[in-house]
């Protein structure tokens, strides 16, 4: 797989609530691939690719935002930080970061003050976010001039190509899915499809699915597919919630997932002879899908996931082959949709 676009996706900032830079990148890429492109009031990107049929629509939602940090207080040369989304504080000390100031991007380090400068209870264990600081190497006067409370901070880890078709980097959650959806849009250029496709890069998933809820309400698709990442097997992760890297996408099962769509996706993957797993999501999926499903009068929804290792760290690892497989599964599903597909969805009582 050509990884240039994915690598630029994960090298561009776009934290929850501050997605603009990455949105712009996706916008450029999707512009020739879609018939209409617009931004929602909350910053979700809506790309519509028209089908040949009678205005049935399928939403494919991938969140574009990434977790990160925001400056909460400035103390001389040092910056105090707060979280945007679910940050794992254990991974923060010693990380390279970028501070996004009005004047431009400033590189920085997240520093963990030595134990004797911290309260006694912080001497062992992970140091709380309120005690971690960011150092940008500037004098207090320069900091005061250049940096303000409310400026965001993103990870600066560069993408790493590893052997065996693996790629490591931050924000693969969920830019990998954005990449899969982009691949799908590219494949659709040479394929006939009946249904309209709503390709959505949602905003603010990591802080409560704000983008997905509102985009689903605005667009009211007939069906929705949510593509997100899930847990890959790896060090410290081996239970039933985990899946092997490079073993294909997972198909969700559980209250968020419409059982009919689940069966259709399983049948399709088998027909394509594509490896896949069933992901058991007993009560919730923890994705945009939980909110899209209960939008307005309800939307039949399915969650498709790509396994990654080390979720919510700056070195998430993915098998690029799984991204291609996911894209193909999406494409073939879209192509398969006929005008009468909705009528086939019945509840087996």
């Amino acid at each position: 797989m050509k990884t240039d676009f994915l690598k630029s996706l994960i090298s561009t900032s776009g934290l929850s609530g501050f997605e603009a830079p990455v949105t712009e990148l996706i916008q450029k890429k999707w512009d020739p691939l879609t018939d209409e492109l617009s931004l929602s009031p909350l910053g979700s990107l809506h790309g519509i690719k028209r089908g040949s049929g009678k205005s049935h629509s399928l939403m494919i939602a991938t969140h574009q935002d990434a977790i990160g940090l925001i400056i909460s207080q400035i103390d001389g040369e040092f910056l105090h930080i707060s979280n945007l989304g679910g940050i794992d504080i254990r991974v923060l000390p010693g990380q390279a970061v970028n501070v996004h100031a009005d004047s431009g991007v400033l590189p920085g380090i997240i520093c963990q003050p030595p134990a004797h400068l911290l309260p006694e209870d912080a001497a062992t264990g992970a140091v709380a976010l309120k005690h971690l600081l960011v150092d940008v190497g500037l004098s207090a006067r320069q900091v005061a001039r250049k940096i303000k409370i409310g400026d965001t901070i993103s990870f600066a880890t560069e993408p790493i190509e590893m052997s065996g078709g693996l790629l490591a980097g931050h924000s693969l959650d969920n830019r990998a899915s954005v990449a899969a959806l982009t691949l799908c849009l590219e494949e659709l250029q040479s394929r006939q499809h009946v249904w309209d496709v709503q390709a959505i890069a949602t905003a603010q998933e990591e802080v409560g699915a704000q983008g997905a809820r509102t985009s689903a309400f605005a667009l009211r698709p007939d069906l929705a597919i949510v593509v997100d990442v899930t847990f890959a097997k790896g060090p410290g992760a081996s239970g039933w919630e985990t899946f092997k890297l490079d073993s294909g996408p997972t198909i969700g099962w559980g209250a968020t997932n419409h059982p009919f769509l689940h069966e259709e996706f399983k049948k399709l993957a088998e027909k394509l002879e594509m490896p896949f797993s069933v992901e058991i999501l007993p009560s919730y999926s923890g994705t945009d899908g939980d909110d899209i499903q209960i939008t307005a009068e309800g939307i039949p929804t399915i969650v498709i996931s790509i396994p990654i290792r080390y979720m919510h760290t700056p070195v998430e690892v993915i098998a690029t082959k799984d991204i291609q497989r996911t894209a193909r599964l999406l494409t073939e599903f879209i192509v398969m949709l006929e005008d009468d597909f909705l009528e086939k969805i019945v509840w087996e009582d």
Partner: peptide, 16 residues
């Protein structure tokens, strides 16, 4: 449906 998971079914039923 799904009341025990957080009153989920009632949300769309009421909207309808």
């Amino acid at each position: 449906v799904q009341e025990e998971l957080g009153l989920r079914g009632a949300k769309i039923a009421a909207h309808a």
